[in-house]
Simulated assay, not measured.
Amino acid sequence: MSEPPGGKSPGPEAAITDDANLDDLIADLRRQDPDRLYIALFAPPALRERLIGLHAFNLEVAATRERVSEPMLGQIRLQWWRDALDEMRRGDEPRRHPVVRSLAAWMPAAGEAAFDLALELVNARERDLEDAPFATVKDLGAYAEATSSNLVRLGLLAAGVTETAAHDAAQAAGRAYALAGLLRAVPFHGAQGRIMLPGDLLGRHGIADARQSIGRRDPGKLKSVLTELAEMAERDLMSARAVRSLPKAARAPLLIRPLARLYLKRLRRARFDLSEPRIDPGNAAKIAALWRARFLA
C-alpha cells in the first residue's frame, strides 16, 4: 500500500526529490499548516527540504481525524505510518510515498532517537480520535510534548542538533505553541461538539458541565480557564527563551518560539475573547516575527 487510508496516492514512483512532489507538499502545508511551512522556508537550503517533508509527515498524522469517516479508519491510517517508520528503522526499502521517502533520506542517520520521537508522535494522535476532554492538565501536557514538542525535536535532529540544552528548549517551546493553539481552537472544537480543555482545570474554575456552560452561561469562568492555560504557556516560553548558547543549526527548528509568543500576545491583547478577530495575527505579522527571530536575534 503506497498511501495511508483517507489520502490520495502520490503514484508508484513518487519521491521527495521530484519537484512536482515537493510542490505538492508545499501546497498542502500552505493550505493546512502555514506556520510550519514558513518555518521550513526560513531554514537554510540544506535543511529546508527536510523540514518540509517532516512537517508534511506531521500534517499527515495530525489531520487523521479530519480525513477519515470513523475512528477505526483513523486507527488503520495511523498504523500505516507506524509500519512505514518501523520498516525504515529496519533498513527496508522505504514506501513509495513522498513523505516517507523524505524521512528516509535522513532519519536512519539520526539514530534511534528520531524513530522513537516519530512513533510517540503517531501514537499520541490516537487521542484525536476521541471526543472526551483531557482529564487533567498533566494529560494535556503529555499530549503537547508527544506531538508538538516531539516535532520540534525531530526538526533539531534533521539539522544534526543533539545537544541536550537545545532539546530542552524544544520541549518547552513545543508545549507553549501547542497550548496557544489549543486556546485559539476552542471555538473550532466547540463547533465539533468537542471540549479539549482539561477537566480538572475546568473544575477548579467552577465549570462542572463544560458542554452546557463553557462560553455560554459562564464566559467569565471560561476566560479564567484560558488565562491559566496561557500563563502555563508563557512560563514554558520563558524557559525556552532562557536557554543560551544554542548551536546555529538550532535556529530554524526553534522558530516555533516567536510564533507562540505572537499568538499569546494577541490572546492577551484581546482579553481572551475568542470571538475577537485580532487574535489572528495574519500571515504578514507571522512572517515578520519569523524574519526578526531568524536574522536579528
Rank of each mutant, 00 (worst) to 15 (best):
K221D: 12
K223I: 11
E163L: 08
G160P: 05
L226R: 00
R217Y: 14
L151C: 08
L179V: 14
A146E: 07
L197H: 00
D168Y: 13
V225A: 03
G203F: 07
D218K: 12
P187D: 04
Q212F: 13
L201H: 00
K223E: 11
G203H: 12
G203E: 15
G220L: 11
R204W: 09
L179R: 03
L157P: 02
R175A: 11
G160C: 10
A135H: 10
S148R: 10
L179P: 04
H205V: 00
L202A: 02
V152C: 13
A165S: 13
H189D: 05
V137G: 06
K221W: 10
K138M: 14
S149A: 14
T136K: 04
R211N: 13
R153G: 09
A169S: 09
G203I: 08
R194Q: 10
G160Y: 05
G190L: 02
L156I: 04
G215S: 08
L179G: 02
G174T: 03
D200R: 02
M196A: 13
H167M: 09
A208N: 12
S224Q: 15
R184P: 03
G220Q: 10
G215D: 06
A170E: 04
L226V: 05
A191T: 08
A208K: 11
N150R: 10
A165G: 10
A180G: 13
A185F: 07
R204H: 09
I214V: 14
E145H: 15
R216G: 13
L182A: 07
P219Q: 08
L151G: 02
E145N: 13
M196C: 13
G141M: 11
L222H: 03
L156K: 01
G199N: 09
A178K: 02
G206H: 01
L226N: 01
P187F: 00
I214A: 08
Q192I: 05
R216H: 15
G206E: 01
F188E: 11
L222I: 04
G160A: 08
A172N: 14
A172S: 12
V186T: 01
F188N: 11
A176M: 06
G160R: 02
P187T: 00
F134V: 00
K221L: 14
A166F: 06
R204C: 08
L154A: 07
H189C: 05
L157V: 06
A166M: 07
S148T: 12
D218G: 12
L201P: 00
R217G: 14
R204Q: 11
S213I: 09
L183C: 07
G141E: 13
L151I: 07
G206R: 01
G190N: 01
G141Y: 10
R153H: 09
S213T: 14
A146P: 05
L183Y: 01
M196T: 15
